[in-house]
């Protein structure tokens, strides 16, 4: 990400340029800043991560692995995978469609639309759960209808999926919009002029251009979908073996004084976060040029 847009060699390798000192800081300032940055990252980000693994392994590997063989843990894993398997593809399709409409066309009210898509980002997770209770709860907007037809939305898988979709709603769109804006419309226009259908142009021109940004967005969306706590906690009902996701299972184990198991399950989610970051870093390293524009912002 740092060595972003570089179709040409970095100016740092250029020999005919003023001495280093005028375009960068003095060495001691440099090292001081590096130290501050690293200390800050270590204190706020790395230490909590280490804590998770240290606590999970506090009683050895046996206790660690035992946490995953329990039926409740397994059903939580299954539910979390199910929810992500529905929520992530949904947001993928939505994100691509939204980015296409917003990046490839000029129309009025675009800023408002982008803001509305972003809205779930800044809605408190608790509120994200609450709104679905207000719509689908038995005293909610559609409550009487749902009760009459015996359809269970909240306190069941559909409600958990909905809350997860809401929370991760902006992820793919937010990533793709600037990326596709950056790339403009010239290539697609060329393909269309040469007689390609719109769908064909999308598949052969647009998609290859955005694939790494898209993959990155999907990864983050997936990590967030699997890790959502607040919103899911409001709509889940906490029925063991039925509506407990992994993050909720972490809380349950924690509340049962089973700290090792709790941190063990937490470490699974932390591991997922690490894998996500590793794949992301690998993509950046391997396809730096392709995705440089896409990592502009989240």
């Amino acid at each position: 990400m740092s060595e972003a847009v570089a179709p040409f060699p970095d100016t740092r390798d250029d020999t005919i340029r003023p001495p280093q000192s005028v375009v960068t800081e003095r060495p001691y300032v440099r090292w001081l800043l590096i130290a501050v940055a690293l200390a800050f990252l270590a204190l706020f980000l790395v230490l909590p991560l280490i804590t998770v693994f240290a606590q999970a392994l506090a009683k050895g590997w046996g206790a660690y692995l035992a946490a995953f063989t329990e039926p409740d843990a397994q059903s939580a894993i299954r539910l979390t995978l199910t929810v992500a398997a529905i929520a992530v593809p949904f947001n993928l399709v939505f994100g691509v469609a939204a980015a296409w409409a917003i990046a490839k066309f000029e129309f009025r009210g675009k800023n408002l639309l982008v803001t509305l898509i972003d809205l779930p980002f800044s809605v408190s997770p608790v509120v994200s759960g609450l709104i679905y209770v207000l719509v689908f709860g038995s005293r909610g907007l559609f409550g009487p209808f749902l009760v009459e037809h015996d359809i269970q939305i909240i306190f069941a898988v559909p409600g958990i999926v909905l809350a997860t979709v809401f929370v991760t709603f902006p992820f793919v769109a937010r990533q793709l919009i600037p990326l596709m804006q950056e790339q403009g419309t010239a290539e697609e226009e060329a393909a269309l002029t040469l007689g390609a259908s719109g769908w064909h142009a999308f598949r052969t021109v647009t998609l290859p251009n955005i694939r790494w940004g898209l993959l990155y967005a999907v990864l983050l969306c997936n990590a967030r979908a699997m890790g959502e706590f607040g919103a899911v906690s409001v709509v889940s009902g906490h029925i063991r073996g039925l509506t407990n996701t992994l993050p909720l299972h972490v809380e349950i184990l924690y509340n049962e004084y089973n700290f090792v198991a709790s941190f063990a399950v937490a470490s699974l989610l932390a591991g997922l976060a690490l894998v996500t970051l590793a794949i992301k870093s690998f993509l950046e390293w391997r396809y730096a040029d392709d995705i440089a524009a896409g990592t502009r912002r989240h």
Binding site: S138, R139, L146, V147, Q152, I154, F155, I239
Partner: peptide, 8 residues
């Protein structure tokens, strides 16, 4: 509250 909101 979950019972009121429709948990079965």
């Amino acid at each position: 509250r979950t019972v009121i909101d429709g948990i079965p």
